[in-house]
């Protein structure tokens, strides 16, 4: 099977400070990769650089688009980058308020990406939006409510619906369950797990929570000080960690 994303020697510096350094990996279609590490380890910088939201200081990111063509993301024009973000990718932010349009209704939030792709039939937009609200367990009767009145968990589920409605091939997620209650987290993780399976999504997810990686990701990368210190199968990394930092992370997890 051929890769969907190829990252080679990717670095991102902030002046003299290192965001991430010399990171390489591949992502295959239908695969969810977790990037774990503590705050400040460079996870989010890496995610944003791979997703072409930050310019790399060195290295390359290649993406194989729907028609099979490889794109070198560093050489894309702004127009192409946005087209890709609109038509083939999705991005789920940690704080749903950053990813949602708060001053318009839940339905419009879900329908926006479809309208950006040129869907111009109101009735069709409504029925797709209703279907997605149901899929993320939001009462479709709330389709015309503004997300400002939603709980944090509902807002995050709405953001997921808004992102996945166009059936992207590749989704970037930055700590999508951080900042939510544990019970709410479980619901969102289960939802993501189901949707990733049903839609055959490929995804790169940043998390500091090893249990999230265990539940969702077949493969995991461990980052420390901007570098990848260990990478492999998630169960291998969690059950037989090799690097001292990974051993520390794994041994620091509370078990119930």
């Amino acid at each position: 099977m051929s890769a969907l994303l190829q990252v080679r020697g990717l670095s991102r510096h902030y002046g003299r400070r290192i965001g991430c350094e010399d990171v390489s990996f591949e992502l295959h279609p239908g695969e969810l990769l977790c990037i774990v590490g503590e705050s400040g380890s460079g996870k989010s910088t890496l995610l944003n650089t791979v997703a072409a939201q930050l310019a790399p200081s060195a290295g390359s990111v290649r993406y194989r688009q729907r028609d099979g063509e490889w794109l070198e993301l560093g050489q894309l024009s702004e127009a192409d980058r946005r087209r890709l973000a609109r038509e083939e990718w999705g991005f789920v932010t940690q704080n749903p308020r950053d990813g949602l349009r708060l001053n318009v209704s839940a339905g419009a939030n879900v329908a926006e990406r479809l309208m950006a792709l040129g869907v111009r039939h109101y009735g069709q937009l409504r029925s797709i939006a209703r279907g997605w609200l149901e899929r993320v367990e939001i009462d479709p009767a709330r389709i015309d409510d503004a997300p400002t009145g939603f709980s944090g968990g509902m807002q995050q589920r709405l953001q997921i619906a808004r992102t996945l409605v166009t059936q992207p091939r590749l989704v970037f997620m930055d700590e999508p369950t951080a900042g939510l209650d544990v019970s709410v987290q479980a619901r969102i993780l289960d939802l993501l797990r189901r949707l990733v399976n049903e839609l055959g999504l490929a995804a790169v997810m940043v998390t500091h929570d090893l249990a999230v990686a265990r539940l969702l990701a077949a493969r995991t990368m461990v980052m420390q000080h901007g570098r990848v210190v260990e990478t492999g199968l998630t169960d291998q990394i969690l059950d037989d960690p090799q690097h001292p930092y990974t051993q520390l992370l794994v041994s620091s997890v509370l078990t119930t």
């Binding site: 492999g232 199968l233 169960d235 291998q236 059950d239 037989d240 090799q242």
Partner: peptide
């Protein structure tokens, strides 16, 4: 068994 399953390296 875990080594064979590649759960351990």
């Amino acid at each position: 068994l875990r080594v064979i399953y590649a759960n351990y390296r």
